[in-house]
Structure formats: C-alpha cells, structure tokens
Computed example of a mutant assay.
Amino acid sequence: MDVRVLSRGPTDPFLSARDLFETEYDLSLPVDVRVRTDPDERTYTGHYADHHVLNISASAASSAMARELALHEYAHMHRYEQSHPSHHQSMEEALYLALAGRSVEQRKLTHCYQIANHMKDIYADDITLDVGPADKLVAFLESSLATALAERPAEAPQAWRRLTPAADPDITAVNAAFALALVERHGLVAPDHRLYDLAAAAGSDAPGVSVEQFKSRFASLADDPDESEYRKALVDVTRAYAVDSSGPAGGTAAD
C-alpha cells in the first residue's frame, strides 16, 4: 500500500494508519495525502483512475485524531475499490426515486446528502473498527453531538434560524441516530453511556424526527448488499427524512 504525503506537515499519522490498515486490508491504488490550510474541510477523499487523494486540514492532520481520520479515509478508499454499492450509488438517482413529484425544503435536500454520507460511513467504519481501537471514535462522536446541542439557541423551535446543516435540530437528531447505530452495531458502549442522554436531548429538539427509527435504519444496513438492496435502503431513508419528517408540504420542489 503506497501512501505519499505531498504537502508540508506531519507524516507519521498517515504512515502509522497505513501500517494498521495493512494488518487486514490493502489498496490497489496509491494514496496521495494533501494537507490543506482550510480548517473547515477536515478530511475528504477523491478517487481517480490511477490513485486516491486524501485531503485533510492542517488542524486535523496535527490533532490527536489524525491517525484515526486517515484510517477512516483508507476504509472509504477500500470500499470504493471494492465497488461497494454505498460508494457508487448516485445520490441524484436516489433523490429522484424517493422524491419525484414532491415539494421538499432545500435544507432537507442538503441534509439528504449528509444522510447518504452516514450510510457510507457505516460501511467504512465496519472496516475501521475491524483494525483499530474504538475509544477515540466514541469520544469524537460524543464530543461532536454535545457541541451541536450546545449551539442550539434558546428561542422556541419555530423561531430558530439555522445557517448551517450542523446547527439544524433535525439533522442533529439524525446525526445522533447515526452515532448510536454505529456504537450499537459494534457493541462499543454500555446502555448508560452519555451518548444516549445526548441523543435523547437531540430527539427532544426535533420532535418530527424519530431518533430510534433512523438508528434502526443505520444499524441494520446489510453487511454486503447488492446494488438493488442498497438503492432501496438509501431511497427509503431519504423519503423517511425528507417527506415523512417534514410535516405539511412546502418549500422547494425536489426535481
């Protein structure tokens, strides 16, 4: 597995993540690591015909989570090379199948992409947690959810003006469901873990979104779905969020 750090910055997290990943898995294509100055990018992966690119912010590359973030991105690359449906299914197709002819708020459409990413992350982290320790991941999920809840304003929900998906109570509730699904899928925490209290608070802030329902959808994703099975799962969860949790029709048409 060939990992090339092409930017100035630390190299050890990416190489140590490679060594850990190689205990069970491998990549056919080389990986170019690029450390970016934008602190909001954190990490994202690009796939090309002859290589992968791991883009990571300078702050993330020098953080205590750097190795775990790199390991997670290598897992995404592996799923992509496997042609796993979660990493090749078109979200635009799923939106069309789920929402054609319906009127959906733009923010809900944006959130649907984040939900699709959660489904990708479930499959990537099935690999990540097969080779790496879980303690930092659990702490990260807990911290991220606590931060999102702390950012909610004091006004009544109908008066809230959300500027970013991360601050929206509906997607925060789905994020909580994802966190619970991931830890339950791998048996990472006890039933009295703080994540459950945080998820309950997130659910209270978004009464139209069932944390339990979305947790079940994420946690029960089949280990090795075919294209049709995965497409149906993505369409169903998209419709459940954008339509079933939306209340009266309104907003921007989904076409």
Rank of each mutant, 00 (worst) to 15 (best):
T37E: 11
T37D: 14
T37V: 15
D38W: 04
P39D: 05
D40C: 10
E41N: 06
R42G: 09
R42I: 10
T45M: 13
T45Y: 13
H47M: 08
A49F: 12
D50R: 11
N55T: 02
A58Y: 06
S63K: 06
S63I: 09
A64H: 10
A64F: 14
M65V: 15
A66S: 03
A66G: 02
E68F: 09
L71I: 12
H72Y: 06
E73K: 01
Y74F: 04
Y74N: 00
A75H: 00
R79D: 11
Y80A: 15
Y80R: 12
Q82H: 07
P85T: 04
S86D: 13
H87I: 05
S90L: 08
M91H: 13
E92D: 15
E92L: 15
L95R: 07
Y96R: 12
L97V: 07
L99Q: 01
L99G: 01
A100V: 10
A100K: 06
A100E: 09
R102A: 11
R102F: 15
R102G: 10
S103R: 07
V104L: 04
Q106M: 14
R107A: 08
R107Q: 06
K108H: 08
T110A: 14
H111E: 04
Y113E: 12
Y113L: 14
Q114K: 06
I115T: 02
I115K: 02
A116G: 03
N117V: 12
N117M: 14
M119F: 07
K120I: 02
Y123E: 00
Y123D: 00
A124P: 01
A124I: 01
D125Y: 08
D125L: 12
T128L: 04
T128E: 03
L129V: 02
L129Q: 01
G132C: 10
A134W: 06
A134I: 04
A134N: 04
D135F: 11
K136M: 14
K136F: 13
F140S: 12
L141Y: 12
E142Y: 11
L145R: 02
A146F: 15
T147Q: 13
